[in-house]
Design a protein around this nucleic acid. Structure first.
Length: 426
DNA sequence: GATGGCCTAATTAGGACTTCCGGTGT
DNA sequence: CACACCGGAAGTCCTAATTAGGCCAT
């Protein structure tokens, strides 16, 4: 059961360069997210139960995760809408309808999101073998080129962050990349686990598996070979390659971050001997926000432009080769909603947001995203009202209704521009 | 009492790892 | 020798879909 306090709704476009959305402005994406389990937010500072000393590298890296945008928050919407479609799936139905009542968010109705071009199985084939049992909807599988993906899966609450998503998160976090994981060839999706043990530890903390190590994590990575998510880079240790990447991936290069620490830093006795100060000294001093954030509760970082905007601005894309991918940086805009996003807001949502004061009464600190979104939607309400007056009743509402009457209810998301990492791209 | 709707707990199926292992390569 | 890497096999965890049963209204 979703609790009001656990919900954040935000716009997928928040994570996407708004310039890219120009072509898709008719396809809104309203996302309802659930805050991950609170206990997972504390994994950074828990002592290692195995008796092994927590390395400072790990602690710092884990701390960076705390400052990282809610893993689910970012990935669930971000990757499902950028990375996944590149794998052959398209969206032909609205993402989510959000209902907000005077009591707050009372429900989110997910609708079928992803329609795989590969799902041509006859209905009979989907029938359960059990007598009298209705066709069971198969649970969405991990995004692989030929597998159906339902957006629902990425919109569910809880701690559902796949390993590949987790790695992408790390690769976009300045406090982790390139220190523990880095791009070696961002244009081909090739990255290296600079500090494999720290990355594995972070993964283990995320999954609440204190015994996680690189061997175990590596097994999971190897399963990705079979599923076409990762490729192994021959001849290079700890180097893997994503088969596809979201177009709006942030590429943090070595120049952006700290001097990388090789694996031995994590294991050669530094586990116990490195003080906080000495370790923190390796954090890029240019990123002053790091120090500031250390004293603040970890909140949305990547998606909340108000928090990490300066860091993002300093994030540079990887050097572009001759055959370049349209690598873009996340917008530094302070606005979650651009003009072209107007259709994002369903008529129902706008209507229910007439109860905006109650939504805004939510604690901004704890529900910054909700708060911000509510504020912006409030302004949209005003804009809508103005539009309705100025266009003689043919304002935003009609635009919205028009969409929904053309077979696709309130909102849509079209597959964004994607960058499958094919040979032609190399 | 029969029927239907609603709700909820239990069951089931399946995906994504996780764990363990033996082996090879560097 | 340590470590990375590989892949099979079995197990765990989690979630969504489904079912069954209880309750209530008609």
């Amino acid at each position: 059961m979703l609790q009001q306090s656990e919900l954040i709704f935000d716009f997928a476009s928040d994570h996407v360069n708004t310039s890219q959305l120009g072509g898709y402005s008719d396809y809104p994406a309203v996302i309802v997210e659930q805050v991950p389990h609170p206990h997972l937010l504390s994994y950074a500072v828990e002592p290692c139960e195995s008796g092994e000393e927590e390395t400072m590298e790990t602690l710092v890296a884990a701390d960076s995760l705390l400052n990282m945008d809610c893993p689910d928050t970012l990935s669930l919407e971000h990757y499902s809408q950028t990375f996944l479609p590149s794998l052959g799936d398209v969206i032909n139905t609205p993402v989510t309808q959000v209902t907000v009542s005077a009591e707050g968010i009372v429900g989110a109705v997910d609708q079928p999101q992803w329609h795989s071009l590969h799902t041509k199985k006859p209905a009979a084939q989907l029938q359960s073998k059990k007598r009298g049992r209705k066709p069971r909807h198969r649970r969405a599988e991990s995004p692989t080129p030929n597998i159906t993906v339902k957006k629902d899966k990425y919109n569910k609450g809880g701690n559902t962050l796949y390993l590949w998503q987790f790695l992408m998160e790390l690769l976009q976090d300045r406090q982790v990349c390139p220190r523990y994981i880095k791009w070696t060839n961002p244009n081909e999706g090739i990255f290296k686990l600079v500090n494999s043990k720290a990355v594995a530890r972070l993964w283990g903390k995320h999954k609440n598996k204190p015994d996680m190590n690189y061997e175990t994590m590596g097994r999971a990575l190897r399963y990705y070979y079979q599923r076409g998510i990762l490729n192994k880079v021959e001849g290079q240790r700890l180097v893997y390659q994503f088969t596809s990447l979201p177009k709006d991936m942030i590429y943090i290069t070595d120049c952006d971050g700290t001097k990388e620490e090789e694996d031995y830093d994590d294991n050669s006795g530094n586990d116990e001997g490195v003080s906080d100060d000495s370790d923190d000294s390796t954090i890029p001093s240019s990123d002053q926000s790091v120090d500031e954030e250390d004293s603040h509760p970890p909140q949305k970082k990547m998606s909340s432009s108000s928090v990490r905007a300066p860091a993002i601005q300093r994030t540079r894309p990887a050097p572009r080769p001759t055959v370049q991918r349209d690598t873009v940086l996340r917008p530094t805009s302070t606005s979650l909603i651009q003009e072209q996003h107007l259709p994002i807001v369903s008529a129902e949502m706008l209507r229910t947001l007439q109860n905006l004061p109650k939504v805004q009464s939510l604690q901004p600190a704890g529900h910054a995203s909700v708060f911000k979104t509510a504020q912006l939607l409030g302004s949209l309400c005003e804009r809508q009202a103005a539009a309705e007056v100025s266009v003689d009743g043919k304002g935003v509402r009609e635009t919205l209704n028009e969409k929904s009457h053309h077979g696709q209810k309130a909102s849509h998301v079209e597959a964004p521009q994607l960058v499958p990492l094919t040979n032609s791209d190399h």
